[in-house]
């Protein structure tokens, strides 16, 4: 490690850090920085919470029955005659 990372550099890499997409050496530097920087820890925590919130934001969607029926009727009408793989 030649120099300490600034908070700004931490901030720029935080999503990649959360997604475990960074080099191990950079991860170590980020973790070392976190030891002594409470704002970055708070920022990391809230970013992680954002990602979890987004992940669970949608109820598992079941397609409504009438949408299902419409879709299949539409496809039968439109596809039946031309056969698959025929881009018009």
């Amino acid at each position: 490690m030649t120099r300490k990372l600034s908070c700004r550099e931490i901030l720029d890499n935080l999503s990649a850090y959360v997604d475990a997409e960074l080099d191990p050496s950079l991860c170590e530097e980020i973790e070392a920085h976190m030891q002594g920087c409470n704002p970055c820890v708070a920022f990391l925590n809230t970013l992680k919470k954002t990602v979890v919130l987004v992940r669970y934001s949608g109820e598992p969607e079941q397609v409504p029955q009438e949408v299902h029926i419409d879709l299949h009727r539409f496809l039968r009408d439109r596809c039946k005659d031309d056969g698959p793989g025929k881009e018009s």
Binding site: V63, V67, D70, L71, F74, L75, R78, C79, D82, P84, G85, K86, E87, S88
Partner: peptide
């Protein structure tokens, strides 16, 4: 949803 599956069929 309809456009998507029509396009999927045509591009199978």
């Amino acid at each position: 949803l309809q456009e998507t599956y029509l396009s999927a069929y045509r591009n199978l």
